[in-house]
Each structure stands twice: as C-alpha cells, then as structure tokens.
Nucleic acid binder design. Structure first.
Length: 278
DNA sequence: CATGTTTGACCCACG
DNA sequence: GCGTGGGTCAAACAT
C-alpha cells in the first residue's frame, strides 16, 4: 500500500468515505456500513457484498475543524474506553492519521469493537514503521480477521478487517466490558468549529441516549440497531440526537458517521466526565 | 490445564 | 526461476 493511501482507522467500524451531501439515505448508510468493516447486516433489502473490508479514515478538508466530544458515563463504574484522535497527526498528504488508546477493564478479552480476537501473527511490514498484528475472531465458526498496526505505545494507527462476523457480539457473563450506558449521563457535544460567525465558534450540543431497544427520541434523528449492532433503520435528518444501544464500539461509528455526513469530524475524544474538554 | 501471545519459519502471490 | 513481501502456521512461552 502506498503511504499516501494509508489512512488510519479510528474504530473497527468507524469509518467510511466522506459524503459531500448531508445525511445519506438509510439504504446507502447500510450499504456503506456493511462495506467498511462492520458486523454482518442481517436486516437488508438486498444482498450484501461479501468481500474483504477495509476500515479506514477518510481525508478531511483542512478547513473543516469540527470537534466531537462525547462523554460516556455509566455511573460510578464508568465505561473504560478512551479514544484520542489527534488532528495534529494528519499527515502531509492530507489524510487523517487517527490514533486511539483503548482502556479495557482488567480481565476482559473483548476488543474495542466488542468481539473476541485471538492474535495469530505479527509482522513488520514494509513501508510502515509500526508492526502489524494479525487477529482472528475466536468464535468457532467465524472467519472474521483483522490486521492492526499499533505504535509502540499501543496506539492503533490502522485497522483492516476482512470477512464478516456471523455471530452477535459476545456478552460477558460477569463484568460487561462495555457497560450499559446511563441515558441520563451520556452526553455528546458537537462543536462545529466550521460554523462560525462573528461572535466566534458556534457550539452545538446534542445528546446520545443509550437504550437496549430502539426508542425514538422525540424530535430527533434515530439510528436503530439490531442485536448484532447493525443499523436497522435510520430516520431523521440533520439533527444531533441519536438513539443507539449500549455497545461502545458502535458509538464512535455513529458519531463519526453523523459528523462526517455533515462534512465534519476531525476530532473526537471519549472518556469520563473527568476527561472532557468542553 | 486452558487459553492467549510471541516469533521464527513457511507458503504463496506477484513482479 | 528468483527475490520480495504479506499472510499464516505452529511450537514455545506466558498468564
């Protein structure tokens, strides 16, 4: 792969090409979602392409500086996920190099994307300063694989997925690694640095509601997910409210999809309230 | 003991 | 046919 083609993945299912338009249709959203490393879509009107999928982050217009800050707080025992996307690392070719650090609860085997992976190899690849690790899904009948390039600090700089998961995300029996989110304490800030006026930056706030079952949020856009975490339905338009279930990996995807479809998304950070940078 | 990781060797596609 | 590089295997090791 040429260096200029290398675009980092932010999350396992967290990217797909920019759309110059605003929000996509539900069908388009599903198709793109499926083609870029997502879990298998089970509710679809038409056949899903089955081919190796690459999860990458698109280039970002340099004049777009949009900040998404999501705060995920499930109470005293908060979800242990932290992600950093550093716009300063956008490389010389204009592609975003996104790095994130994932803090997982001790003892959890679940990856940041909610699936169990077993590492089966690691190589230093030409043209990359970081080693590439090879993972297989540990589910007996699942052929999903992923390649992850990480820095020495453990920051993920690229994730490439192949094959599809043919099973739901595993659920931990004791301590869920991705704890259900409290609908009352989950909040997200969309700070549209691009939509400035004479008074300065216009900051737009929104709310993400965690829910076990899709529940429309009055007056808001909703993305409904099935038990696999797949997008089932999409309603609304240019709103900043999302209703999604509780698995964290999908949050980032949806956040970025929202922002990206609005022509934004350059920075995102996830953490507890203590970590927020409003 | 079970499971996951590490790491060198091997296989294979490609130029 | 040969060299190179990416992907996978599997034994050894760690947890």
């Amino acid at each position: 792969m040429e260096h200029h083609e290398k675009i980092a993945a932010l999350k396992s299912q967290a990217s797909r090409p920019f759309s110059s338009s605003s929000f996509m249709s539900s069908q388009k959203l599903l198709q793109d979602f499926t083609a870029t490393g997502s879990p298998p879509i089970t509710v679809l009107d038409e056949a899903v392409l089955v081919r190796p999928k690459v999860t990458r982050f698109p280039s970002l217009p340099s004049d777009l500086l949009t900040e998404i800050t999501a705060t995920i707080d499930a109470g005293s025992d908060t979800t242990c996920e932290e992600m950093e996307v550093d716009t300063e690392q956008a490389n010389c070719c204009g592609h975003l190099t996104a790095c994130h650090t994932v803090k997982k609860p001790t003892g959890s085997r679940l990856s940041f994307d909610g699936y169990n992976w077993r590492k089966y190899g690691q190589k230093k690849v030409k043209g990359s300063e970081f080693p590439r690790s090879y993972y297989k899904c540990t589910h007996p009948s699942c052929t999903a694989k992923r390649k992850v390039e990480t820095t020495v600090n453990g920051q993920i700089v690229e994730v490439v997925y192949s094959d599809e998961h043919n099973h739901p995300k595993p659920h931990s029996t004791s301590t869920p690694p991705w704890k259900p989110l409290s609908s009352t304490s989950t909040e997200v800030m969309f700070s549209n640095m691009h939509a400035t006026n004479n008074a300065g930056v216009e900051r737009q706030f929104g709310t993400i509601q965690a829910c076990d079952t899709p529940v429309p949020v009055s007056g808001s856009s909703c993305i409904f997910l099935d038990e696999f975490g797949n997008i089932k339905d999409f309603t609304g338009s240019n709103k900043r409210y999302v209703c999604i279930p509780k698995h964290s990996a999908i949050w980032i995807l949806l956040l970025l999809q929202f922002a990206r479809n609005e022509g934004n998304a350059a920075f995102a950070q996830f953490g507890t309230h203590n970590d927020q940078h409003f």
